[in-house]
Structure formats: C-alpha cells, structure tokens
C-alpha cells in the first residue's frame, strides 16, 4: 500500500542512474516587489529512475519553482540540482509540458511535433514516420494537418505532451498541465497520461494542486508546505500501475485511504 521510501537505498541507486533527479539542500530566493522572497526549501530529494513523482501543494508553495530548477530554466540560490548526474540545461535530457500548451500557432499540429523531432536531431525521413506515431500515442488521430486553433484545449495539451515525448528524453516534467481544462477532459487526459506513462516507464515529475490527480497519477507523492516550500509528506504509492481500469483503481479502498492521507497532509501543510 503506502510506505516511506527507504532513505538509505535511494541515493545509492541514483548515483549510477542517468535518469534520476537529485536535489541536495536546494533553496531558492527571488527578488519580489517588497524585497527578497524565499520561495523554496531547503529541500533534499532523490528521484530514482522510473518513478512518477507528483509534487502537490497549495498555490505559491514553490512547486513550480522547483520544477523550473529541475528543468534548468533557473539556478537555485543555494544547494545543488542534478538530473542524470549533471546540472540541468533546458532542452537536454528533459521534455517539459507547461500549464498552457505553448504550441507554435504558425505551425500545424504535426508541424509542432515535427519541430521537436528536428531539435532532437531526428533525420527528416524518420520524422515523417514518427509524427503520426507520437500523435497516436497521445490519442490523436487525423489532426496532423490541422491548425492549432482548430483543435480543442484538451487536444492542444495532448499535442504538447506528444511534443515533450518526441525527444525520447529520460525525464518528463509536467507543470500543472491539466489545470486549465474542464473536469471531464482533465479526467480523460489523466487516464491517458497514466497509460502512456506505464508504457514508457519514463521518470516523471508532475506538479499539481489536486490531491485526486496526485494519487491517481503518482507512484510517489510529495506534499510541500507553504512558502518557502519544504517536504511535509513523502509517500510511496503502492497502487498497481498497469492492468487495471481507471474506474476500478478509483474504487479500491487503498485509493480512498491514500487520497484521505494526502488530502489531510495538504490541508495541514497549507495552514
């Protein structure tokens, strides 16, 4: 069911593992309007390869900051962040899905995915083959020639996920990717992401403020306190990753228990 990760075993695995994320005493302070603001930490966290880690916390707890540090968009003001054993650089080793799809409107749907493949160094002939393949993988058919504004918000976010998967990076980072979608679409995308994630087994860090989403998607859930964000709860989720229908999963008693535990921790941490 759920247990705390073994603190002794995890780092030993991570040292050898290119896909893992390691945070050591990471803190981040930025210049706000009224002086410096401590956004995060200090936090130490090790994510072994293959983990689907969900960071959950109230808005403004620094979870998005943490993701930007792991993506390499910003450098921590203290401590070290390592992905694959090296300092993270944007565009190297991690695919990113943002809250907004951030697709390029001057490209078609297929063109957006194609561009990602090009940046990843995939040769032209192979790109033509892989674009429809990637779109299929996120549940999109016959949309490659459409314009971005001709598909729905949910479909746009699917394209963004396909684009992030294009580079075959060992790490996938997702910053509240479903927060702007309606409830029904969000649920379907969660189910599809869970399926895709189980298929690829890619190390993922997913940021959300939704307890439901955290428990449904995560193989490990970390709850952050309010600013400056620290770890309030670190939970290994023992739910089955494959061979189970989403509705069956949600009906499991362990699922309800986990949701209650995480929900309680989030509320306590935000107080």
């Amino acid at each position: 069911m759920s247990s705390r990760p073994d603190p002794a075993a995890a780092p030993a695995v991570a040292d050898e593992d290119a896909a893992a994320v390691r945070l050591h005493e990471v803190g981040h302070v930025y210049d706000g309007a009224g002086g410096p603001v401590a956004a995060l930490g200090p936090i130490s966290l090790t994510v072994p390869s293959g983990t689907f880690l969900v960071l959950v916390g109230a808005s403004g707890c620094g979870k998005s900051t943490l993701l930007r540090l792991v993506a390499g968009f910003e450098k921590p003001t203290s401590g070290t962040v390592l992905t694959g054993g090296a300092e993270p650089v944007p565009g190297r080793g991690a695919g990113i899905v943002f809250q907004q799809p951030r697709l390029f409107p001057w490209k078609t749907v297929g063109g957006n995915v194609e561009l990602a493949l090009r940046y990843a160094g995939v040769p032209r002939a192979e790109r033509a083959r892989r674009v429809p393949e990637l779109l299929e993988r996120v549940g999109l058919h016959d949309v490659a020639d459409r314009r971005i504004w001709q598909i729905s918000g949910g479909q746009q976010q699917r394209v963004a996920i396909a684009r992030a998967l294009a580079g075959d990076d060992p790490l996938l980072l997702l910053d509240e990717p479903f927060a702007a979608l309606d409830a029904l679409t969000r649920e379907r995308l969660q189910e599809d992401l869970r399926r895709v994630s189980a298929q690829t087994g890619r190390t993922s860090v997913f940021v959300t403020h939704s307890v439901e989403e955290a428990v449904f998607l995560g193989s490990r859930v970390v709850v952050l306190t309010r600013r400056p964000g620290r770890i309030a709860l670190d939970l290994e989720v023992g739910l089955p990753r494959t061979g189970i229908e989403p509705d069956e999963l949600r009906a499991l008693p362990e699922y309800a228990a986990l949701r209650a535990e995480v929900g309680h921790a989030v509320r306590a941490a935000a107080a």
Binding site: I96, R102, L103, A116, Y119, A120, R163, G167
Partner: peptide, 16 residues
Amino acid sequence: TGLVEAARALGASRWN
C-alpha cells in the same frame, strides 16, 4: 517568453 521557453525546452539553439 512562454513560446521561447517551450522551444528552449525542446533543445532549440539560439539561432533556432
């Protein structure tokens, strides 16, 4: 900036 960041996340060079 959002789109520039998205391109950088995909591995785009400065010229890209």
